[in-house]
């Protein structure tokens, strides 16, 4: 029995199109947001959930968090079906939406926390301990008397995170938690999440477009596209499928003779710089280097692997998303 079990989940929406001229009734179209999606997650896992916009990520998060009811299929979180046992289920989950605030805007955050304590029926002693622990870890001690509206984006995000963890959920949904944050805030947030996951065993499901978040936090990623699960496994393994090209920048003392380069690589000239893109699977890097050395006296050379975002973009393209 896994902590989260999702089997053959289907969900479609009917969207009413704008009425066209001359037509009496509006046309309807059906969007299949999820098609036969199945996966399992064990307690304590940190999972990344990626896919282009409109892939069905937020639909599945909404189903797992109990907001939406699927058309068919089965899901259980800790033995409960989210949409039928809503109240019991949500007692054990926490949700953070990067672009939506759940705390009260105009009052000091401590007041929001006290209200959340009543909403989740947390015992007084347990609440005080947890608050102490979280404010410590999230560096919120000095901000407790500050209203949310006076905080910076990074502070707000930390305050939100604290609010959604006060009732010690076993499962945490994060939707774009680092959107708009500066580098320092991002790193702090990641560090906290890793710690929370390690020490409390909180299962985390992270939805994001930020591949650095995924790389830093998640051992496992799931790729969703057009409502279908396209990949489920390790991130490096996924990337290696698409990480087939290398780029070398070289500069020579004198104009080189590059005619001996094989046709399978591409050559671009940018001022004095030559940019060569090749596939190591076809021409081993050692061969490539010796060819370049023979072409003339090298002044400077750098080799680069491809940027993760570019790889993901290529993956989406090849998966036809």
């Amino acid at each position: 029995m896994h902590f989260i079990e999702v089997e053959h989940l289907n969900k479609s929406f009917t969207v009413r199109k704008k009425r066209e001229k001359g037509r009496f009734l509006r046309e309807k179209s059906i969007i299949h947001a999820l098609q036969d999606v199945s996966f399992h997650v064990d307690e304590g896992e940190l999972i990344g959930y990626i896919g282009p916009n409109g892939a069905g990520k937020s639909t599945s998060v909404k189903i797992l968090s109990g907001i939406l009811t699927p058309d068919s299929g089965r899901a259980s979180v800790g033995g409960l079906t989210p949409w039928t046992d809503r109240k019991t289920h949500v007692q054990h989950i926490g949700v953070v939406f990067g672009q939506r605030m759940q705390l009260w805007w105009d009052v000091p955050i401590i007041d929001s926390y006290r209200l959340l304590k009543d909403i989740y029926k947390v015992q007084k002693g347990a609440f005080e301990n947890r608050l102490e622990e979280l404010t410590d870890a999230l560096d919120l001690k000095n901000l407790l008397a500050t209203p949310l509206r006076l905080m910076s984006l990074g502070q707000r995000m930390r305050a939100e995170l604290c609010g959604s963890l006060l009732h010690s959920p076993r499962l945490l949904f994060l939707d774009e938690p680092t959107i708009g944050l500066d580098a320092v805030s991002k790193l702090k947030l990641r560090e906290f999440l890793l710690k929370e996951n390690r020490e409390k065993g909180t299962t985390v499901l992270l939805t994001t477009h930020d591949m650095e978040d995924i790389a830093a936090l998640c051992q496992r990623v799931m790729v969703l596209g057009h409502g279908k699960k396209l990949y489920d496994g390790q991130l490096p393994e996924l990337l290696s499928r698409y990480d087939t090209q290398r780029t070398i920048h070289v500069r020579y003392d004198a104009p080189p003779d590059l005619s001996s380069l094989p046709e399978s690589c591409t050559l671009q000239k940018d001022g004095d710089n030559f940019i060569i893109t090749y596939e190591p699977a076809r021409i081993p890097t050692s061969d490539m280097l010796s060819l370049l050395q023979k072409a003339g006296a090298m002044q400077e050379m750098t080799a680069q692997s491809q940027n993760v975002d570019l790889l993901i973009a290529r993956m989406y393209r090849e998966m036809d998303l």
Binding site: S65, I67, K87, V90, R100, Q102, I119, Y120, K121
Partner: peptide, 18 residues
């Protein structure tokens, strides 16, 4: 529209109450 109603579903209380 603001998504507040969604938030209410994420809490262990009745929707009308919230």
């Amino acid at each position: 529209r603001s998504g507040n109603l969604d938030t209410f579903f994420l809490r262990p209380r009745g929707i009308m109450t919230q």
